[in-house]
Nucleic acid binder design. Structure first.
Lengths: 208, 208
DNA sequence: AAAGTCGGCGAACGGTTGTTTACTGAATGA
DNA sequence: TCATTCAGTAAACAACCGTTCGCCGACTTT
């Protein structure tokens, strides 16, 4: 039986994390497919060969970054969906969360936006799978609301996907704006709220 | 005074186009920032140095591809907006056009999706500018409709951006699906129509 | 204390990259 | 017809790439 947290494991985990951190830093300005292995190890301060002790290849580093970026969001999504007050409130809260995420986790979100349709198949697949899980969770949350009476499950899923896509789009909009421009920031918040409201109204009056 | 269409010019234009075509072909499987200059000229069958007779650098090739991909769409958008029959009809027609574009212009759309948040600043800016123009055109079209009575211009623009973003998302969904799978194709068409309908209903009942 | 594990290193490998240079030869304009 | 323009070429440049190899030395197990 092996210890899972010896000095050995901890040190290995540490340089693995250093590789991920440095990767995220470098990926703010370039694509995963153009990120060089030597470039990355140089940034961390280890030899090129050391990389292979942690990842078989760059694509795997990318997949690990997807998990790091999106994994922690599932709990947040579920929490927001659970506290179902009126829809106006839920819109404000959702937009606020996306906004704060776009500020605090900027590099992570940038990475996701950039690689969602990027050149690395495995990473694209990982992101798509993660977003599908989000859609499922949102659909489950919607199903629990009274407003969903009369909706078929597949219709609810389409609506959930619409919400998820809209969240991603909003996050991407924050990334386009300069990080320290409160005016642009506020403008995005306002238009995001209006868009969500339009969708909510459409939902309430469905099917016309 | 120089002729604009001598044999000279025509031949130059021809290899320029060959570079663009080969670029688009290679970019189906990779990012612009990882596309090598030599790789490209090898594909075309010219010497590496020849590239510089047509483009200062790869970024400029990318910007030219943006124009080629999105330029021809403006006329289409305007045409659809102009023939404003009932909204159900306009939804069907819009989705159909996106679907046909996704089939016929697959590489172009893939390029746009991939580079919209890609690693090359100039290309990102070119795509953003083009999409903003689309939003302006859609907003102008919406303003001409009776249903837009009582909408402020900035509200109309938000709505137009929502439509444009939705078109882009739908196009991207087609790219995710295999090119020759009619079932998946039809599923995307159906959900795209439903999403557009939700937005239209929300618009009709705005502001609640 | 001895034996084993294993993360990190330095060196070397063949191959590719972007860019510049001086050039050739066909289309061009006087 | 003759001089000029200029798209495309071949060659050379230094720099960089991903990957493999054997080795070392600190941690871990026995």
């Amino acid at each position: 039986m092996s210890h899972t947290s010896g000095v050995r494991q901890a040190q290995k985990q540490q340089t693995r994390q250093a590789l991920l951190d440095a990767g995220l830093r470098l990926l703010e300005r370039q694509n995963l497919s153009s990120l060089g292995l030597r470039e990355l190890t140089r940034e961390v301060g280890v030899s090129p060969a050391a990389f292979y002790r942690h990842f078989p290849g760059m694509a795997d580093l990318g997949v690990a970054l997807v998990g790091e970026s999106l994994g922690s969001l599932h709990a947040v999504v579920r929490a927001v969906m659970a506290e179902s007050t009126d829809s106006e409130d839920i819109i404000d809260r959702t937009v606020a969360i996306i906004a704060s995420y776009a500020v605090e986790q900027r590099p992570h979100l940038r990475f996701i936006a950039r690689e969602r349709y990027g050149g690395v198949q495995a990473v694209r697949a990982a992101i798509a799978a993660e977003l599908d899980r989000f859609a499922d969770e949102v659909a489950a949350g919607l199903a629990a609301q009274p407003a969903s009476a009369g909706w078929r499950p597949d219709e609810l899923l389409v609506l959930a996907q619409l919400y998820v896509d809209h969240m991603v789009m909003t996050a991407a909009a924050f990334l386009d704006a300069p990080a320290d421009d409160p005016t642009a920031h506020e403008a995005i918040v306002r238009s995001a709220r209006m868009r969500m409201r339009i969708i909510s109204i459409g939902r309430a009056h469905w099917p016309g």
